[in-house]
């Protein structure tokens, strides 16, 4: 068990975005999180990366504990990579330097070592010929692949994907999902918030349905899509399938 979430709650004023959620994820597991807009999917992922402070409960990630004290956030962020819907590439840095920077300043790798890792990862996501381009010169699909390479460069044990294809033109979704499938095949532990039902069916080990900050249902993709037990899950699936 690499992630162990116990009864976490995350509030924004009067809104309870994540409501007493418990969840454990095994090493190498791919968990897809589905749910309507505003159901707390992003907030849950952000809690796992300590980008959001939890109000109660605790999160154990590979032996490091996040609680209200926020003591281990630095180690946890090294263990957990995150890819965002809006890419969030650093626009003032070239593709190579986007991937290099945190390796240099956080992992303290030498310039040569960082560049070697970056080039290897950029080749893996099919962007070996874009090293000197700036984010502004890339397509959405290319940007998102750089963002994945940038997160992987820190050697995370867990990768979080928050609707990473939602801002893409349809013809670019495939190239990003392909990279994610490859990662899953290599045994990366992944939590993926997505609307791509095909991806969930094909890649997920488990599907979680979140509504109003609570886990309503979780099952293998086979069971989840063919025999949902809860009415809210059925209603949701009826809309997206």
């Amino acid at each position: 068990m690499i992630i162990d979430v116990r009864n976490i709650t995350c509030r924004f004023g009067s809104i309870t975005a994540v409501d007493n959620v418990s969840l454990s994820v095994d090493q190498g597991e791919v968990v897809v999180i589905l749910g309507p807009s505003g159901s707390g999917k992003s907030t849950l992922l952000r809690c796992l990366n300590a980008l959001e402070e939890i109000d109660s409960g605790e999160i154990n990630i590979d032996g490091f504990l996040i609680d209200k004290s926020h003591r281990h956030i630095h180690q946890i962020r090294l263990e957990v990579g995150m890819v965002f819907q809006a890419f969030n590439l650093f626009p003032h840095l070239s593709v190579l330097n986007n991937v290099n920077l945190a390796q240099r300043v956080v992992r303290r790798r030498s310039r040569a070592e960082a560049a070697r890792v970056s080039k290897e990862l950029l080749a893996k996501v099919g962007l070996q010929d874009k090293l000197d381009a700036y984010p502004g010169q890339l397509s959405g699909g290319q940007k998102q692949r750089v963002a994945i390479a940038r997160a992987l460069a820190m050697n995370p044990k867990i990768m979080l994907f928050d609707e990473v294809t939602s801002a893409l033109d349809p013809e670019m979704i495939g190239e990003v999902l392909e990279v994610m499938k490859q990662l899953a095949r290599e045994g990366m532990t992944m939590l993926v918030v997505t609307h791509e039902i095909g991806f969930a069916r094909e890649v997920a080990d488990r599907v979680i349905f979140l509504d109003e900050g609570k886990i309503v249902e979780q099952a293998s993709p086979g069971d989840f899509f063919t025999n949902p037990t809860h009415q809210r899950t059925k209603d949701f699936l009826a809309r997206v399938l």
Binding site: L51, H74, R77, V80, G81, F84, F90, A102, V106, A147
Partner: peptide
């Protein structure tokens, strides 16, 4: 957020 998620202070 992107910088913090990479472990930067």
């Amino acid at each position: 957020e992107a910088a913090m998620s990479l472990g930067m202070t």
